[in-house]
Amino acid sequence: MTKFDFPPSIKSRPVWGTLQARPGRHHLFVADAEGAQAILDVATPDLMAGSHIIYVPRGADHADALRALEPAQFHEGPSYAASVPRLRRALQDAKMGLQVYLAGTEGVMGQAMAEAVAAGIPHTAIQTEHRGSTARRMQCVHCKGITEDVETDPFVCAHCGLNLFVRDHYSRRLAAYQGVRVDAEDHGNVPEPRGIYE
């Protein structure tokens, strides 16, 4: 299964939806990995005729299936970071009424949402659907470095090396959850890492 039921959480934690085709002439899809399946679920020839899909496979093999939908524009990027200039250009060229659809991991959806918001689209107007990995994009509150694809709690900051615990507090602006030193009050006492949802 590529879908996951997230447990109830605090009010800053994003709640992901299910993509639905909305009326309109222009549609921008950004997806990574298993997010392709959410696009496949809503695609119709009419919708695809006005669609631009930016897809980052990250090891998944759905690119051909997406290409076969014959969207007006299709781009397969080797990484999310490499796709950002194209995404920014697509948002810069956006016409009134553009519909934005994000699917896949929280990290990629969150970063693409921040780009769309920076381009002037309200976050409440952006559709999302989580698929695939439940790993988190984490910001270290101490050094500000981002660690991608964090699966365990606690984890080691990829930048400063501190052992951080994984909070549910989430910043849309940073597209990241907050990581805080786990042994700040008892240096060296770091619990055994466990899966975030274990």
Binding site: K11, V141, D168, S171, R172, L174, Q178
Partner: peptide
Amino acid sequence: WSLDFDLGMNFFEWHAP
């Protein structure tokens, strides 16, 4: 609490914890 992290949040979001 971190302004840098909470910047841009709404009233319910920054009080979430």
